[in-house]
C-alpha cells in the first residue's frame, strides 16, 4: 500500500450563527462586545484517506457539509478540530476565474491567476501556448477580460487551473463549464491528470458524474461521515437512501 495523498484525521468545523453580530463599533459598545451566537457543527469528526492517483468524490445532500469540508481541504477554512495532511503540492479550483482583473488582458490574467494558484512565472510561460490553446479564446487573448463572454471567461479560468498540474487538485463542480465540446475536452484532461499519478478530489451533485469519474467516494450526511469506499458501493447506498427519503 502506497502512502495516501491526503489524510483527513477527525476533522470538525464549527460555525457561529450570529443572531446579532457586532459588525459595527456601535453595536459592539452597546452590547459590551458580546455577540449573540449559536454554534453549528458543519463537519463533525470526519476521517478518511485519499489514495494517491485516485479521483475521490464527496457526495451528500445540500447542507451536508461537503462544501465546508472541501474548503478545509483547499485551506480556505481551517478545521477547529483534527487535521488534514497533504502529501504533495495542492491547488484548489472552487470558482473559475476568481482573481481575474477585468481591466487586464487575458494574457496578463493568466500570469496573475497562475501565480495565485501557486505556479511560478517560468512554468506559466512554458505552458502559455497550451493554456491559450485549451481555452479556445484564440485572438481575444490580448483583449481585456471584461470584454469576454461569460463562456470565454470561465474557459480561460478553467484552462489556467488545470494547467497548474498540482499533485492534488481540489475541485468544486466546475466540470459544468462551457459547451459540450469543452466539457468533453476537460473530462479528458482530468483523466490524463489522474493517469499521471495525480489526485483529484471533487464535490458534485451529479451521481452519474461520480460513477463515471470517481474511484472512491465519501458520503456525508449532516456533517457526519456516512460511508466511504469504492464509488460503486457508496453511490448505490446513497441512491437507496435518496429513494427512501423521497419515497
Amino acid at each position: 500500500m502506497t502512502e495516501p495523498a491526503v489524510i483527513v484525521d477527525h476533522v470538525s468545523k464549527r460555525f457561529k450563527l450570529y443572531k446579532e453580530r457586532n459588525q459595527t463599533l456601535k453595536s459592539a459598545v452597546m452590547r459590551r462586545r458580546k455577540s449573540v451566537a449559536d454554534e453549528f457543527w458543519a463537519v463533525k469528526d470526519v476521517s478518511f484517506e485519499v489514495p494517491k492517483g485516485s479521483t475521490f468524490g464527496l457526495i451528500g445532500r445540500n447542507g451536508s457539509g461537503k462544501s465546508t469540508l472541501l474548503k478545509c481541504l483547499a485551506r480556505i477554512l481551517h478545521p477547529d478540530e483534527g487535521s488534514i495532511t497533504m502529501n504533495g503540492k495542492a491547488a484548489s479550483l472552487l470558482e473559475v476565474g476568481s482573481g481575474f482583473h477585468p481591466e487586464l488582458t487575458g494574457r496578463e490574467n493568466i500570469y496573475l491567476n497562475g501565480s495565485i494558484l501557486g505556479l511560478a512565472k517560468k512554468d506559466i510561460t512554458a505552458r502559455l501556448d497550451e493554456i491559450i490553446d485549451f481555452s479556445g479564446v484564440g485572438q481575444f487573448i490580448d483583449q481585456p477580460v471584461k470584454n469576454y463572454s461569460s463562456g470565454m471567461y470561465v474557459r480561460l479560468g478553467f484552462s489556467v487551473a488545470i494547467h497548474v498540474k498540482p499533485d492534488i487538485l481540489v475541485v468544486d463542480e466546475v466540470l459544468a463549464v462551457g459547451d459540450g465540446a469543452f466539457k468533453k475536452k476537460s473530462r479528458e484532461k482530468f483523466r490524463e491528470f489522474t493517469n499521471s499519478g495525480r489526485t483529484v478530489i471533487l464535490v458534485t451533485h451529479s451521481l452519474a458524474q461520480v460513477r463515471e469519474m470517481c474511484d472512491q467516494v465519501a458520503w456525508l450526511n449532516k456533517g457526519e461521515l456516512q460511508a466511504v469506499g469504492p464509488a460503486k458501493t457508496v453511490t448505490k447506498q446513497y441512491q437507496e437512501y435518496l429513494d427512501a427519503q423521497d419515497g
Binding site: H101, E103, E108, S115, I116, K121
Partner: peptide, 20 residues
C-alpha cells in the same frame, strides 16, 4: 516561496489603476 504572487498582485494594482 510565493513572492511571485506578490509581484503579480503589485503589477495588477499598478496596471489596473490607470487603465482606460
Amino acid at each position: 516561496a510565493t513572492r511571485e504572487l506578490l509581484a503579480n498582485l503589485t503589477i495588477r494594482e499598478v496596471k489596473g489603476q490607470y487603465r482606460r
